[in-house]
Amino acid sequence: MSERRRLLVVYHTQSGNTGQLAEAVVRGARRVDETETVVKRAFDAGVEDLLACDALLLGTPENFGYMSGALKDFFDRTYYPCEGKLIALPYAVFVSAGNDGTGAVREIGRIALGYGWKEVAEPLIVRKAITGEALEQCEELGEAMASGVALRIF
C-alpha cells in the first residue's frame, strides 16, 4: 500500500451552506494522511478528475426538490466519456436541504446507478440551518470515506 489513493469531493454551493458542509467533509477527510483529498466545485471538475479518483463524495444544495444544476452539469459532461470505466466506484452524498432533500438524493442515486457506482454510506441530509452537529457529521463522513479508501475497504 505504498501509493496514496485519491478521494474526490465534488460540490456546488450558491448560498454558502453546501460550501460549509464541503469544508467540513474535507477537514475530516484530510485527517487521513494515507488518502489524497481533491476538492473541486462541480463546474470545475471533469472527466480527468473522475477517472483519477478511487472514491467520490458529492455535495449539493437541494434546488426545487432536485440536485443543483451545476452537479447535474458535472454528470452531463462526464457520463459518456466515463461510461463503463468506473464500475463499483465508491461514493456518498451530502445535501443541504431547505425541505427534505430526498429528491436530490434519489436523482443522484439514479445517475450513480447508471455509472455503475457503489453507494458506501447513507446520504447525509442537513435540513435548514447548518449546525455544529451537522458539521461534525460531515467531518465524520469525510474521515470515514478517506479511511475506507486508504484501507481499501471499498
Rank of each mutant, 00 (worst) to 15 (best):
R27Q: 15
V9G: 00
A112E: 03
T60L: 08
G132N: 13
D76E: 13
T18R: 08
S15H: 09
G19D: 08
A45T: 00
A42I: 10
A112S: 15
I125V: 15
L7Y: 02
E34D: 14
E23S: 14
V32C: 06
G59I: 04
R4S: 14
A112F: 04
P123D: 05
D44T: 08
T37F: 03
W117V: 09
R6P: 09
V95I: 14
M145D: 08
E133R: 09
L113V: 11
V126H: 04
G148V: 11
E140M: 10
N17V: 02
D49N: 12
G142I: 00
L57S: 05
F64I: 07
Y115E: 11
E122C: 05
M145Q: 09
C82R: 01
D76I: 07
I111R: 14
G98T: 12
E62Q: 07
V105H: 09
A22I: 03
E83I: 03
E122V: 11
F74E: 03
I130D: 11
G142Q: 05
E34S: 14
T18V: 06
A146Y: 02
A92T: 02
R27T: 14
R31C: 12
G16S: 06
C138P: 06
G84F: 06
A88Q: 13
R127C: 11
L50F: 05
L50M: 06
G69L: 05
T78I: 00
W117I: 10
R127M: 13
T131G: 03
L151C: 11
L113W: 10
I153D: 08
F43N: 11
D49K: 07
Y66F: 13
Q137W: 00
A55E: 02
A22P: 04
G132Q: 13
S68Y: 03
V9Y: 00
L113C: 13
L86E: 06
V105F: 08
A144Q: 13
K118P: 00
L7N: 01
D76Q: 07
P81A: 04
L58V: 10
T35G: 06
K72R: 13
M145K: 10
T37V: 15
L89E: 03
T35K: 05
A55K: 01
F75E: 04
R127Q: 14
F154G: 04
L124F: 03
P90L: 07
Y80M: 15
F154S: 05
A70S: 13
E119L: 14
L89V: 03
V47C: 02
S2N: 10
Q14R: 14
D54L: 01
Y11V: 02
L86P: 04
S68R: 01
E3A: 12
V39R: 14
Q137T: 01
L50P: 01
Y91A: 01
A134R: 01
V120L: 10
Q20L: 12
T35D: 05
I87V: 14
L113K: 15
G132P: 13
C138K: 04
L113Q: 15
T35Q: 06
D33E: 15
